[in-house]
Simulated scan of single mutants.
Amino acid sequence: MIITEAPSKFTDLEKMSVQEILSNINKEDQTVPAAVSKAIPQIEELVEGVVARMQQGGRLFYIGAGTSGRLGILDASECPPTYGVPHGLVVGLIAGGDTAIRKAVEHAEDDEALAWKDLQAHNITAKDSVVGIAASGRTPYVLGGIRKASENGIFTGGISCNSNTELSAVADVGIELIVGPEFVTGSTRMKSGTAQKLALNMISTTVMIRLGKVRGNKMVDMQLSNKKLVKRAVKMIMEDTGVSEAKAKELLEAHGSVRKAVDSFRAVSS
């Protein structure tokens, strides 16, 4: 039996009090960062490969089914507003298409040919990278996509939550986040999903930093899509330049981003 399908260490969950359920879930969740930490060497290898290709004009694709697919889409969708990169630089694909983001599409994850078709719709090339996400490490949609990508000279990675998975075997870089049995047996949206989310945070954040999308510790290229972010941007400009709030607002309105506002001020001041 694979680890993600192993019986929970807890029994008679329905007999637990609410406090006991919450506390036990929390105790299990505390083991997740340690599992992710053990995979840092593999995560590093993946990031290095992705960055090298993105510096040559490549893109990053995530492919997955169910929870894994939704996590990939979430990570991809947050890159443009956070780092000001174009939509389409990081792409999340889920078995069954956009409908599956909200509602499961029957048997979509069992189609080994579907992911490659989805990738081809984006005119994928050897400059790109594809990361398959599957807690079990054996989801046909993901395996088929990674196999075809590899056959076509595309750099690939796999994120799973079992040991020695088929996904790790077919990907260039296999990342295995071994979090153990779930609190509710087989419910991989729990610890496995949390581990995948942590790894994806690490991958996309590190990639964007290496691509120069962070200065110091600030999101200087973030999209100014609401009042909160505009206020944050004004504060960042004030901190980096020492100007007043009014001047910072003026610079931001004139240049449209923290990076451009700060660079313009420094150019004039030098």
Rank of each mutant, 00 (worst) to 15 (best):
L167G: 04
D111C: 12
G132H: 02
A195F: 02
E48T: 13
F155V: 00
V50W: 00
P140H: 05
G144M: 01
N201F: 00
A171D: 03
G97E: 01
M202A: 12
T11Y: 12
A65F: 06
R189C: 06
S244G: 08
V207R: 05
S257W: 08
H122D: 07
S77E: 10
P140D: 07
M16Y: 09
F265C: 03
A233Q: 07
A39W: 11
V184Y: 04
D29W: 02
S225R: 14
S17F: 02
A104F: 08
L229F: 04
P33K: 04
T165P: 03
F61L: 01
A115K: 02
S163F: 15
I25N: 04
A108C: 07
T165L: 02
P181C: 07
I124K: 09
N123F: 14
E45L: 14
S168F: 07
I101R: 13
S264K: 15
A195D: 04
A254W: 12
V179F: 01
K235V: 15
T205N: 10
R210E: 15
G49P: 05
S187Q: 05
T99W: 14
A76Q: 03
Q55N: 12
E253N: 13
L177R: 05
S17W: 06
M190L: 14
L74K: 08
I159R: 03
M236R: 06
C161Y: 04
S150H: 15
R70Y: 05
G256A: 10
Q55E: 13
V18M: 15
V130L: 09
K148Q: 14
N26A: 08
T125C: 09
L229H: 10
K231Y: 12
K148Y: 09
K231P: 00
D75S: 12
D263A: 14
V85Q: 02
K27G: 11
Q56T: 12
G256H: 10
G212Q: 09
L22R: 11
L93H: 03
A261I: 00
D110C: 11
K235E: 13
V207H: 05
H107S: 15
F155Y: 13
I237Q: 06
V207A: 04
T194W: 06
A65E: 01
M208G: 00
M219I: 05
I25Q: 12
S264Y: 15
L119P: 04
N162M: 03
